[in-house]
Amino acid sequence: MGWRGWLTVLVALAYLVHPYLIAPSGVLVGSGATFPQAQLEAWMSSFNNAGFPFKVEYVGKGSGGGQSDLSAGVVDFICTDPPLSSELWARLKERGDLVEFPFILGAVVVTYNLPGVDRLRLNGSVLAGMYMGYIRYWDDERILALNPGLRGVLPHREILLVHRSDSSGTTFLFTSFLSLSSEEWRRSVGRGKLVRWPVDELGRGLGGQGNLGVSQLVMENQFSLGYVEWSFALQLNMPIAELSGKSGDFTVPTVEGLVEVADSALRILDRGPEDDWDGDVDVLLETAFSSGYPLVGWSHLVFYRGDGRILQWLSWIREEGTTVPGYAPIPDWFWEEVLE
């Protein structure tokens, strides 16, 4: 190796060392749910340019992925839609001063790819039938019964059902809703972040990674249907199906509706950042189910107290962060409780 070889090695070493010389700052690393991803990305891109001594990085890989990273201890904070299970909460709490609380509201919407259909009404039991596989074609009588105006419009084509392939809080919310609406679904599939999709075995399922993956698959495949966080459908101009809860009225989500539901759910729950939040989704969903748009969700922030940077970031969010379309802010009184 001549002098040029050594010079190359030297330059390489210099490059690998340079961050230690010029950027003593660090990164606050988070991962988890893709449900709040669009909101987090918006916050991050302003925060990271606001001259703070550290940057925030978030990898959306699903609520399960976030909880997995927290268990393995490889991130600073995580976001997860369903809270940690009591068992995991207790286990991780032993390692340090763990806190958890919902920090952003959203909704799961059902979106579809049906050329020429811009208004579609569905309910939990029909959705359960579709994902179970026995509602096979778009012009099924059970779909037409909810959409009498679409007779002759809905095609005789098989429905392609898109779902998440990763362990996902959005899936947890969606399957909880199906379980609430359909006894059969509750018995044969149940709910979870990762479930066994009956349509997969029939060859009519398709798995996507993250809310982004599901959105893309729905957009690319005609005659498909899937569920995503509200903001993704809004940003991508995807159609949103009207859903009905207990009342039987068909609606799409609204910001006011979300805040109202969250407000009453938080009052019923009466928990703080130090508490175990297991089971809160039931309260939230049942509140939503009986009041209006049934698929309301929130995402939790989980981290170990002691890293001042997270609090710095949270205070910034509280003061300067704006809420992007498709999400709603957590009621003010709750934020105050948390930050104090």
């Binding site: 399960g64 997995s68 972040k193 060859g203």
Partner: peptide, 19 residues
């Protein structure tokens, strides 16, 4: 649509340690 072992790993490993 289907799975292969390698794509199963690529999809699931990120959330595996939760279980």
């Amino acid at each position: 649509p289907g799975y292969t072992i390698s794509s199963l790993i690529a999809n699931q490993f990120g959330n595996a340690f939760l279980y």
